[in-house]
Design a protein around this nucleic acid. Structure first.
Length: 857
RNA sequence: GGGUGAUUAGCUCAGUUGGCUAGAGCAUCUCGUUUACACCGAGAGGGUCGGGGGUUCGAGUCCCUCAUCACCCACCA
């Protein structure tokens, strides 16, 4: 026997790095085919962070179709990228600054930006090397960072185009303002804490003197800026007041009572005071009802000139005391209750966040949304799962204008300048490295804000390719956008809208929404709970392929699922199975084997396995074309393990080695490659007959010729073998002999059957004796002692009962006229066939039962 | 409060357009060391598909409803 060239157990870490180097250095991942393109542009992960296990899933979901399409011969591109991750990165960096006793407010924006750039550049290497370990077949020569020039310039151009089309405007909106730091924060920067406070009930007298409405509030001082009172439209207590007005105490302003469904009738009195300039809800209500917005708190947290003189310049806290005191004095305070509720605080200094009106840049969304809705309704983009399309349409139909201004340093500056003498005079200019510019003797100040990160990333599909480059011509629109459900609205929707706006075409043809990898118990993974799984040690222990398959197995799009290490172990075993299949076949074929383009099957097993290979190739193709990764993996797994290893290879042991073994091995490696790229490529590289070729660019298995009759004959052998195994085991037979009469087929396949069943031998006799096989029409018996009679009869009885219940079911179905009339013919025919089969089976079982009973007596 | 998803074997989950005698991996039980692999092979047990209604010849699959769980969004005046 030839010594095995490969070790018994596959050790992934001994090969993975070298294999990835081989791919990368040979340019395997760079698109160069002249055929149609298949393109994925990676949603850029945070360049600053370690990859969490969710990225093993993401990488798999992007890489499996990429490798599949590459093997189909398409011009395949998976373009990698990394995200500057605006606020998140800034927050991480600020923690480091804090350790040195500094804060972001100690630096100018330019200083901070440059420090952050260096900080991220250092961390990026780590992230890139981790991605390589996942085996992702992306083209690193096209790597793009979200702050690369081409992305930044694209953002300026898009902003300019929107500006020139009149789709951007300045508008006042509420922002979360820290009056200590003098800056606004994004929503996620606001830290909500429970606070004990009071709920004040204030009387608002009706202007006509006919009564009063009592409102409840936690912020009595804001009543100085009230411009309305809201009640629920269905609230009977207030129906009569709707449309009338009240006169505010202290200011004497007359404000309307309006009806709005946002009001919670069970809270307080069911009547809400509206302070549009200092509360988001009130702001929204004011927009709906065209109420004025009066700013009574300035950026320093002090009361403005919009309030009566005695309150001007007071802090919010001072104003609250004064207002409560005055209301009480005037008899306007009905009562006070204790209340605990959430209050937003600055996450840095703990100051209570004040919602304040501030000028922001807005994009008018309706002109952008309309073409997107039309494209979606025309089914131009396929969603996985399909339901996401409707959800997205619903979102777009209710889309509000988009605030693209952000008040942080780590981002792309907004290329707009304001005339210092004429606040309404804004101009577009991309000289953002300067704070002040002079044009025609006028002085302009740069907008200190940066773009919302989603603004620049909305152009990601074409900005990465470069609109004027050959890549754009080949690869746009992209084939697939693979991403998480949480950014369907903020990102996917905007890529579609801006893609249509800028390029006139949809940005991608398909969208795959992945679910999340949760902790084993289904909880969300989080650093603070400490249930985060790091993918790197998993790769170290089980291999990259095992992690990939283990995490893809049993997952559907957009469904969250716990991380199950058992699946990874299963996949590790599967890799080892592939490994050992290869070891066996290489050994059988020997060094002299050369690749033959056409397989020449001889035995039934060979015809059978080639038929299976062809069928499985088609099934897997169907699954992969529809992004059913889990099903494709399942199909592959059972083909390799059950068909190839357990039947075909076992069968090959009693037959002479032939080229079909090599052909099947190639097929298996190709089918498995998208799922297990490392182990399949490693094996490919060890094969003597593959030369210097690389598996990753081999073509997907081609149809092979095989004889259906011969294949069917092997099915017959399988049935006989399975029955014999069952009998031997359940009756505890000790290496029986299989007798047969008048069955050349059994004679021909004697060695095969003997080996697969591990019986003593087969022998032709003139007259049968013993247990008669029921699974085959051939006349076969197992020789047994009379002692097993009872057990055997019982076994037959059980089998008969099963068949009889089937017969009953089928007969009932067929006796139903409507069924026979209305069900598709093939279904009815199938039932008839099954009924006939079951009946035949019963006859055989019965005959055997009678015969054996009499024999045993 | 709004939205989305889930509920199938002991555990984790598949099950594409309704046609199913409901599957897999792990776990369990029995046997086995036949030289590719014990990260293995052979055999077996285990489920009224969350409850209730409905549509249909036919429902795990579609509709309604209830229950439980999870996530997202909003809100806490």
């Amino acid at each position: 026997m030839v010594a095995m060239n490969l070790p018994k157990v596959y050790e992934p870490k001994e090969y993975e790095t070298d294999i990835y180097d081989l791919w990368e250095k040979s340019g395997t991942f760079e698109p160069n085919s002249a055929h149609k393109a298949y393109t994925i542009v990676m949603p850029p992960p945070n360049a600053n962070a370690n990859l969490h296990i969710g990225y093993a899933l993401t990488a798999a979901l992007e890489d499996i179709p990429t490798r599949y399409h590459r093997m189909l011969g398409e011009r395949t591109l998976l373009l990698p990228g990394a995200d500057h991750a605006g606020f998140e990165t800034q927050a991480v960096y600020e923690k480091q600054l804090a350790k040195k006793g500094k804060s972001r407010f100690d630096f100018s924006r330019e200083e901070l930006y440059s420090q952050l750039y260096d900080f991220v550049a250092t961390n990026r290497h780590n992230f890139e090397s981790q991605f390589r370990k996942l085996g992702i077949s992306c083209d690193w020569t096209r790597f793009t960072f979200t702050l690369d020039d081409k992305i930044v310039t694209r953002a300026y151009k898009t902003f300019k185009q929107l500006w020139e089309d009149g789709l951007v405007y300045r508008g006042e909106r509420l922002v979360n303002f820290c009056t200590f730091h003098g800056t606004a924060f994004a929503d996620i920067e606001v830290e909500y804490k429970e606070a004990k406070t009071s709920l004040w009930y204030i009387r608002y007298p009706l202007t006509d003197g006919s009564g009063e409405v009592i409102v409840a509030t936690t912020r009595p001082e804001t009543m100085l800026g009230d411009t309305g009172v809201a009640v629920h439209p269905d609230d009977k207590r207030y129906t009569q007041y709707i449309g009338r007005t009240v006169r505010l105490p202290l200011t004497g302003r007359e404000v309307p009572i309006i009806a709005d469904a946002f009001v919670d009738t069970s809270f307080g009195t069911g009547a809400v005071k509206l302070t549009p300039a200092h509360d988001q809800n009130d702001y929204d209500a004011a927009e709906r009802h065209s109420l004025p917005k009066i700013s009574i708190i300035n950026h320093e947290g002090k009361l403005t000139d919009e309030v009566p003189e005695s309150y001007r310049g007071l802090t919010v806290v001072e104003a609250r005391e004064a207002v409560v005191h005055d209301l009480e004095k005037g008899g306007h305070l009905e009562k006070t209750e204790d209340l605990t509720h959430n209050v937003g605080h600055c996450y840095k200094c703990g100051t209570v966040i004040e919602p304040l009106l501030r000028e922001q840049w807005f994009v008018d969304m309706q002109p952008l949304a309309k073409p997107a809705i039309a494209a979606l309704k025309a089914n131009k983009i396929t969603f996985y799962p399909a339901a996401k399309r409707e959800q997205l349409i619903g979102y777009l139909e209710n889309l509000r204008d988009w605030n693209i201004s952000r008040q942080i340093a780590w981002g792309i500056p907004i290329p707009a300048f304001q005339n210092v003498d004429q606040p309404d005079d804004w101009i577009f200019d991309d000289r953002v490295d300067q704070e002040i510019i002079e044009i025609d003797g006028k002085t302009y100040h740069r907008d200190p804000d940066v773009f919302d990160t989603w603004f620049s990333s909305s152009s990601w599909p074409y900005a990465t390719l470069g609109i004027d480059s050959p890549d754009f011509k080949h690869h746009y629109p992209l084939s697939l956008m693979e991403t998480g459900g949480e950014i369907l609205y903020p990102w996917v929707s905007r890529m579609i809208m801006l893609g249509l706006y800028v390029t006139g075409d949809i940005p991608f043809q398909e969208v795959y929404i992945h679910g999340y990898v949760m902790a084993a118990d289904g909880a969300k993974m989080s650093k603070s709970i400490g249930n985060v799984v790091d993918p790197m040690p998993v790769i170290e222990q089980y291999g990259s392929d095992a992690l990939r398959m283990g995490i893809v197995a049993g997952r559907s799009p957009a469904v969250n699922r716990g991380y199950d290490p058992r699946r990874v172990e299963e996949a590790r075993n599967f890799c080892n199975k592939l490994w050992n299949i290869a070891r066996y076949i290489e050994d059988r074929l020997g060094d002299s084997y050369t690749h033959a383009p056409e397989a020449r099957p001889k035995t039934t097993a060979e015809h059978w396995i080639l038929t299976k290979l062809q069928h499985i190739t088609e099934v897997m193709g169907g699954h992969l074309d529809s992004y059913r990764f889990s099903e494709a993996y399942d199909t592959l797994y059972h083909f390799v393990w059950d068909d190839v290893a357990d039947w075909y290879i076992e069968a090959s042991k009693s037959e002479k080695g032939s080229g079909v073994l090599g052909h099947v091995l190639e097929g298996v490696l190709k089918l498995a490659h998208p799922f297990a790229p490392f182990v399949t490529e490693t094996i490919w590289q060890t094969l003597a007959w593959t030369g210097d070729t690389i598996l990753a660019v081999q073509s997907w298995p081609q149809p092979t010729k095989a004889d259906a009759k011969q294949a069917q004959a092997f099915e017959e052998i399988k049935a006989i073998v399975t029955e014999v195994r069952g009998l031997v085991h359940s009756l505890e037979l000790d290496k029986p002999t299989l007798y047969y009469t008048d069955a050349p087929f059994i004679a021909t396949n004697s060695a095969l059957i003997t080996r697969l069943t591990n019986i003593a031998r087969t022998r032709e006799v003139s007259d049968g004796n013993g247990l008669h096989l029921t699974s085959t029409t051939y006349q076969c018996w197992l020789d047994v002692d009379a002692g097993v009679a009872v057990a055997h009869v019982e076994r037959l009885e059980t089998q008969k009962a099963e068949q009889q219940s089937l017969v009953a079911q089928y007969e009932k179905r067929l006796s139903n006229d409507s069924y026979v009339r209305q069900a598709p013919k093939q279904i009815v025919e199938q039932t008839r066939q099954r009924l006939a089969e079951a009946k035949t089976m019963i006859e055989r079982l019965q005959a055997e039962q009678q015969r054996f009973t009499s024999l045993a007596e």
